[in-house]
């Protein structure tokens, strides 16, 4: 190989073959995927996110939730015994595996590569907004043994006015964490509210997709 042209053509062709295979063809195959419409109610599946949840997706991105939490319920490649479901489903992370259509409208995607924490594909079906706020503020107090970092910087302390803020943290439900001094409350910032709106919107098992019927 002492000719630059031969070298270049080879380098070009090998790379383009994979580019076509892993970028262009998947795009052609899946790029036109549309949400499924429920015949009776006319609701879209997956449903579109609210504005707050959309902003929450950016909070999720900015604070790197994806490095510990995946959002995909996998099948299993093993031959499981009769009546046994894939481990992801057995752990309660979803009633069915997830499909490409489940991720429509997600920019960026949070498929994830790591499960230091549990999968979040359906976390909206498991916990309430109040629980999420308490857990984000003091993870180890809410779920014992958790190594999730505390997201106290997404909360602020303010003087109680009138009856107080409805979503202020209820410290009687956060064992071992010092409440703020008398007359003050800890409330979520806009970012925390958006993040929790996003987490509550993660409920992919709550609708059915035709491809899940196989």
């Amino acid at each position: 190989m002492n000719k630059l042209s031969t070298l270049f053509v080879g380098i070009f062709i090998t790379f383009v073959s994979a580019w076509l295979g892993l970028v262009v063809i998947p795009y052609i195959q899946l790029g036109g995927l549309k949400p499924e419409k429920d015949e009776i109610t006319g609701a879209l599946m997956p449903p579109a996110l609210s504005g707050s949840a959309q902003r929450g997706r950016l909070v999720y991105a900015a604070n790197g939730c994806v490095y510990c939490h995946s959002q995909q319920v996998r099948g299993s490649a093993r031959r499981l015994p009769e009546g046994e479901v894939p481990p992801d489903i057995a752990r309660g992370w979803g009633a069915r595996r997830t499909f490409p259509r489940d991720y429509l409208g997600e920019r960026p995607h949070f498929l994830g590569t790591m499960r230091t924490g549990p999968d979040l594909a359906n976390v909206g079906l498991r916990y309430t907004a109040d629980w999420q706020h308490r857990h984000l503020y003091a993870p180890a107090a809410i779920s014992r043994g958790s190594t999730m970092p505390p997201f106290r910087y997404l909360y602020k302390k303010q003087r109680i006015v009138g009856a107080g803020t409805p979503d202020a943290l209820d410290f009687s439900l956060i064992p071992g964490v010092e409440p703020p001094e008398e007359g003050y409350e800890i409330v979520p910032t806009e970012q925390a509210r958006d993040l929790v709106a996003y987490l509550l919107a993660l409920r992919r098992s709550s609708y059915d997709l035709p491809e899940a019927a196989e």
């Binding site: 998947p26 490409p100 991720y103 995607h109």
Partner: peptide
């Protein structure tokens, strides 16, 4: 100009 859905995952790992 992000593409739709899980194709992003494929391109991401490509």
């Amino acid at each position: 100009q992000p593409v739709e859905g899980s194709v992003q995952g494929i391109i991401n790992w490509w």
